[in-house]
């Protein structure tokens, strides 16, 4: 099957070269759940290098194993085969070096905005003085623009505000890598667009290594340096990487008219649609292995007998 990747536009703008050394390497990772007949292979043979200082986006359809991949990276799950290496050390469990922002916020409902952020700050920066930690919390509350709501509890906040708290909580840990697991997919379209710009702004300030998992191609192009599509599962694997050659700082409204942006969006979308079609065809092929033979019958007459017709 030919894929529309080939006619993607050549880069016209000089790319800010991300340093080539990988911070995290995923080497031949596979992961599945269940045993025997019910076994479901989610990811198979994933290879990926996350370079220091780059913003990488993984785009895929829902159900293709994106969340499993984040959990593996975070260390909440261990791969069945292969390994994930960070700074020459194999990842065996969760660590404060890899901050994760969950799709459903995961805020603790009994703590206030400040309490939620302070929980991680107090834990990660144990050796700091009380005042230092408090200032640190304030700084990040301010960064996500929630100074007016520090005393509120999560249930008193809107979805967008909750995700800001979640983001602040993770950023405040000062992780080496930021893992964003579909952080905006539970939000409405307008809030989502506001939050995208916010994340973009924060990232431009911090320039942190960041991995975004999303199902929104526009979002990926807007935020990322590189986009890697995740082919639909089961046995999901990664597709070829697309480099996003758009100058930073990026402006969302301006990008809508950028030819480069449009071409890239088409290319990524076409690729994803094509691979999904292919996986569906493959599935149909495999399920057609033993087709049911229909009997070759012809009705004698299509007319009902007169007596019953009325």
């Amino acid at each position: 099957m030919s894929i529309a990747v080939l006619d993607r536009p050549r880069p016209k703008v000089a790319v800010r070269a991300a340093s080539p050394e990988p911070l995290i390497s995923i080497r031949g990772v596979s992961k599945g759940y269940g045993i025997g007949m019910t076994r479901n292979e989610v990811l198979s043979n994933i290879n990926l290098n996350l370079r220091k200082g780059e913003f990488l986006a993984i785009v895929g359809f829902s159900g293709s194993g994106k969340t499993t991949l984040t959990k593996l990276l975070a260390g909440l799950e261990t791969p069945d085969s292969g390994e994930i290496v960070m700074d020459n050390k194999v990842i065996t469990g969760p660590s404060q070096e890899r901050g994760i922002v969950f799709q459903n916020y995961s805020l603790l409902p009994w703590l206030t905005v400040r309490g939620n952020i302070a929980l991680s700050v107090d834990r990660v920066f144990r050796h700091w003085t009380r005042a230092e930690r408090r200032d640190h919390v304030e700084k990040f509350v301010e960064m996500v623009g929630l100074s007016h709501a520090v005393h509120r509890r999560p249930h008193e906040l809107s979805g967008g505000m909750r995700q800001r708290v979640s983001l602040a909580r993770t950023l405040a840990m000062k992780p080496n890598v930021l893992l964003l697991d579909e952080p905006l997919s539970a939000l409405d379209a307008l809030t989502r667009s506001v939050m995208q710009e916010e994340i973009l702004k924060i990232w431009e300030e911090e320039r942190q290594t960041c991995l975004l998992i999303t199902n929104d191609v526009d979002e990926a192009i807007l935020l990322a340096d590189r986009i890697v599509p995740l082919n639909p599962g089961p046995k999901a694997s990664l597709g070829p990487a697309f480099t996003v050659d758009l100058e930073r700082p990026r402006d969302k409204t301006a990008l809508n008219h950028n030819e480069n942006f449009k071409g890239l969006r088409n290319a990524v979308t076409n690729y994803l649609v094509a691979v999904r079609q292919k996986s569906r065809d493959d599935e149909a092929m495999s399920s057609e292995a033993s087709p049911i033979e229909l009997p070759d019958l012809q009705p004698r007459s299509l007319r009902l007998p007169r007596g019953r017709a009325g």
């Binding site: 909440l76 469990g93 969760p94 660590s95 404060q96 901050g99 994760i100 969950f102 990660v124």
Partner: peptide
Amino acid sequence: DKDYMNVAKVLKLSWTQ
């Protein structure tokens, strides 16, 4: 909630915490 436990795991809270 599993999500709360995930938060605890990422923060590497001790058993009592």
